[in-house]
């Protein structure tokens, strides 16, 4: 028994030392673990891809159910027959939805002059709070760390590591995510940071800059387009924090990308030749003006009917 305890303590000590050594080496930077990570990624990613594809209709079905739960009226309206029909039609709907998302993403890339590699999300972060996603393209498709990742609507994140056929993307809402932005129109500079929730924090570098609700932001772009290419739409200001006397101005921003329906993304493998400036921002939908033209039609005038008196 004592021998067992000694052996257990010894192995505990050894494993702790190995773990601490690994943490230290990894925190110091460099690529000590990129080899094992890429090797494991090459093995695990195909399994994740299959699991993700096989269970996507089921996952979406459950996701829909959880959304339905939040709305009692909807639950009352849903009958068993409706649910069965939905389940049957689900695969078709999913494919159509993916095609639409891909089309929107590719239109954004084409308008901005970005050369992209489309990708499908195959996994999400293990711990639930670290906001990373796994995608099904990697170095074989030209994807490298520090590349911009876009989705339908705008910026979604940047590649943090890439294996041969998969890559990990840090998404815009992660608390460690930061991107330099320009305020569309005024060209004022600022920095967007993730909050760990659905909205982002904007810090404008000049406290005198006027910022209003509804103002739109685009990525400023980094040197050589890494990690961010210029001109990618980021989000829209939804509230402005009044901080009298502060050196910077703070605002809350909602990203253009809908994170709830995220499934298809694209990695920008080549930055554009020229900065697309504000041209990629979503165009406001024109309000139709109804014009009614009334034209007078000549009518047959009644002819006096002479009556006999």
């Amino acid at each position: 028994m004592n021998h067992d305890r000694r052996r257990a303590r010894l192995i505990l000590g050894v494993l702790i030392v190995i773990s601490l050594l690994a943490i230290t080496l990894d925190l110091r930077g460099g690529s000590t673990f990129s080899g094992p990570r890429n090797a494991l990624s090459s093995v695990v990613s195909p399994i994740q891809r299959v699991a993700s594809n096989v269970t996507r209709p089921i996952g979406r079905f459950f996701s829909d159910l959880t959304k339905i739960n939040s709305n009692r009226e909807k639950i009352n309206k849903l009958t068993a027959e409706n649910r069965n029909l939905r389940a049957k039609q689900f695969t078709d709907k999913a494919s159509a939805g993916n095609a639409e998302l891909l089309s929107q993403t590719l239109i954004l890339a084409a308008n901005g002059g970005y050369r992209v590699v489309p990708a499908q999300i195959i996994s999400m972060s293990q711990s639930g709070f670290s906001r990373t996603i796994g995608i099904d393209v990697g170095t074989n498709s030209g994807v490298k760390p520090d590349m911009t990742v876009i989705a339908a609507g705008g910026l979604i994140g940047r590649v943090v590591s890439a294996a041969s056929n998969s890559a990990t993307v840090l998404i815009i809402t992660d608390e460690s995510f930061k991107v330099g932005v320009r305020l569309a129109g005024t060209q004022a500079l600022g920095v967007i940071s993730g909050r760990g929730s659905g909205v982002l924090d904007l810090e404008l570098l000049d406290a005198q800059t006027e910022v209003r609700i509804g103002d739109e932001l685009v990525a400023r772009g980094s040197v050589g387009g890494k990690p961010f290419v210029p001109g990618v739409p980021v989000g829209k200001v939804i509230s402005v924090v009044q901080t009298p006397g502060a050196l910077t101005r703070i605002a809350v921003v909602r990203p253009f990308v809908n994170l709830a329906t995220l499934d298809i993304v694209a990695v920008v493998v080549l930055p554009p030749k020229s900065d697309p400036r504000d041209s990629l921002l979503p165009k406001p939908i024109p309000t139709p003006t109804v014009t009614v033209t009334v034209t007078a039609q000549p009518t047959v005038s009644p002819t006096p009917n002479p009556t006999k008196s």
Partner: peptide, 12 residues
């Protein structure tokens, strides 16, 4: 730590 999409320090 090592499997995708793990991004934290290896060993944590």
């Amino acid at each position: 730590d090592l499997a995708p999409p793990g991004n934290g320090p290896v060993g944590q």
